[in-house]
Design a protein around this nucleic acid. Structure first.
Lengths: 200, 200
DNA sequence: ACCAGGATGGTAGTAACTATCAATTTGGGG
DNA sequence: CCCCAAATTGATAGTTACTACCATCCTGGT
């Protein structure tokens, strides 16, 4: 459909989004999430409240929206079909995490901490797993044709995402000191065992 | 602290909660969650909106609050310590599901369907896993003393809960036809393999 | 240079909560 | 049986997230 921002208009749009989000996260960290109104964010960003709502339909989106699209599902679909699903998904998630932590950690870390400490944000963040899960299952295409296989794939995806989330929480509570991909790998080992469950 | 409702006052309080929740779920099913205001619920239950808010701090609680306490964590703690964690937690969750579906399914099913179809409810429901996860880890006590073991336990718990949730979703979309405990067992098999990962 | 379409802003409204105070009911002990 | 402390309930007024609608302005591709 629409790839990375190509036209100038889309670039500008992405830029104002970035500005609004940056101010929002800064204010949320300074005054707390509930202690900051959307109007405060609008004022800090130099736009009207209407504009904020146009770019971020809900206050939660100010923290949760990620301009990196759903590349995880593509990574999963690109893995060889022979291996057990939890390993394919796990590998894709570790790769994505490596890409995420490649740049500047601090903004990601600030957002993560907000997500963990604010119930409303935490809830919405976990609900995003639902979207990712569906994307992963859909990305498998014919591999998950019948309902039973699709169910097993959905289970594998949700379990992997939950394990990853627990690793994210630990990483954030350690102030991002450890290596995130390693932590996620460790989580997968704890949940699914070091050895691959033998495919039948 | 406080066990089952012992004094008469607590019984009455629990009864009015039940009345309010019943009317709320009925209205949500009839007119949709967003199409029903808290005032509508109050009117249907014959109380003032204030009373609704006193018993259910948020509109979401009208669907999500469950009078069955957190017995899952106790069940986990009661399992023998030798087995791998995912199996201990999985067994406890299957047992709890069996207890849940023993009575009348319809109210549970209606609430589940609302949770699945309404984003706000789905998110809050998933966030409850956070509480359960913590309770499970805490219930292990000395078993999860050092941070690393606690982390593995947290990962195992979150992965198990996610797998169970996927089974819940399938059960609800099948209108509760299948056997819920069996579905959950199937989910665990898909995620963690039929054979126990060997403890090291 | 122009103009269609997108971005922005203002106004007014709805509904989920919250704080506070007053009124009413209740239930267990003398 | 009565009575008081405590709990439950209710009314009012306010804050805030979010929506619909309309007018305006700005932009960028032809």
């Amino acid at each position: 459909m629409d790839g990375r921002p190509s036209t100038l208009r889309e670039q500008r749009r992405a830029e104002t989004q970035r500005v609004i989000q940056t101010h929002a996260v800064r204010l949320f960290v300074e005054r707390g999430y509930d202690g900051t109104t959307v109007n405060d964010v609008a004022e800090a960003a130099g736009v009207s409240p209407m504009t904020v709502y146009r770019h971020f339909p809900t206050k939660e989106d100010l923290v949760l929206v990620d301009q990196n699209g759903p590349l995880v599902a593509d990574r999963v679909a690109a893995t060889p079909a022979g291996q057990p699903l939890v390993h394919r998904i796990g590998g894709a998630l570790v790769e994505s995490a490596r890409a995420l932590t490649a740049g500047d950690d601090r903004f990601l870390l600030a957002r993560l901490r907000l997500m963990i400490s604010t119930p409303a944000l935490r809830a919405r963040h976990l609900d995003n797993h639902h979207v990712l899960q569906q994307a992963i299952v859909d990305g498998l295409g014919d591999e998950a044709a019948d309902p039973d296989t699709a169910f097993r794939a959905a289970v594998a995806a949700s379990a992997c995402l939950a394990a990853m989330h627990t690793a994210l929480v630990r990483w954030a509570t350690e102030d991002g000191r450890g290596d995130l991909p390693d932590l996620i790998s460790e989580a997968f080992a704890a949940a699914f065992g070091d050895a691959a469950p033998r495919p039948r």
